[in-house]
Design a binder for these strands. Structure first.
Lengths: 164, 164
DNA sequence: GTCTATAATTTGATAGAC
DNA sequence: GTCTATCAAATTATAGAC
């Protein structure tokens, strides 16, 4: 994966987390990276493919960060909480797959499937760590909900108050 | 408010709850209602105004439904749960203000303010009913989160499993 | 109030030179 | 790999006839 391709994924991730799938464009991403939109198409042929690649990378990195937190001695629920919090407070943005999921019925198939996988994989990881399926889904729902309300009210501190 | 204006609000609400603010267009709404897009502009001059009107009506109706549930003898938390559940299961769609809030940073000012008001008013109502501010925000966050995860996985039954 | 027509811009995507 | 140039379609919005 080239530096430019990575920079495109970075820019697209930032924009999708702010505005959702239908809220980002090739020209915006291109301007952010410092190339022309045709160059973005060279790396990612369609918008659907680009967004799906962004979601896949996000899910992988998220799982990796949770795994690292676990190795550092945190309990599963604590690990997830920490990584969600970092995504919101450090970046000042929604969870990518939460932002996508809110408009799931409008997503192209590849993108919808990748957004689904984020939640399926989250549940799977938590179940492997000893939680029931219901507990796992409850945890993810509570973290996403805390993020959504914090985003709605424009105050990241609300995340701590609600999910803390 | 004319019948056509109401039909426009209905169509716009359906579409925003599926696709968010940037995912709906005047021509789609017009086609749904059976008029031309210029007629939609006659009733609502801009997209921002239309979406803000949809959000205001949604918040008012939601508060009314919660109030009705309360008069029927349900506890505050139960009332909110019931109305959220109905919004998801009967309509098969996200909460309008949840769908808007996910892309809050991309919303025009009027619309962002109306989406905020949904949550502010929700907290206010629950605090008046005896909950602490934190409990009130937690409840709204849990209901929105349950909806989001159910929407992501395309299975409304998950709402009951997670928020039940 | 609704229509036709259209302006002005943006969109995703492609062709072809370099 | 990136560019210029362009296409076809969609977008929000307006002007003016009826």
């Amino acid at each position: 994966m080239s530096d430019i391709a990575n920079a495109i994924l970075d820019a697209a991730e930032r924009r999708i987390r702010e505005a959702g799938y239908s809220g980002f464009s090739f020209r915006e991403i291109a301007a952010d990276v410092g190339v022309k939109s045709s160059s973005v198409h060279y790396h990612f042929p369609t918008k659907e493919r680009l967004a799906a690649a962004v979601a896949r990378r996000y899910t992988d990195r998220f799982a990796e960060a949770v795994s690292e937190a676990g190795k550092a001695g945190l309990a599963p629920a604590e690990s997830w909480h920490r990584v969600f919090r970092k995504a919101l407070v450090e970046d000042g943005r929604m969870c990518l797959c939460g932002a996508l999921a809110a408009a799931a019925k409008d997503l192209p198939e590849e993108v919808r499937i990748e957004a689904q996988r984020f939640f399926q994989r989250g549940v799977e990881t938590l179940v492997n760590a000893g939680l029931s399926q219901r507990e796992a889904m409850k945890l993810l729902a509570n973290l996403e909900g805390a993020m959504l309300v914090a985003n709605a009210l424009g105050d990241t501190a609300i995340f701590d108050e609600v999910a803390g």
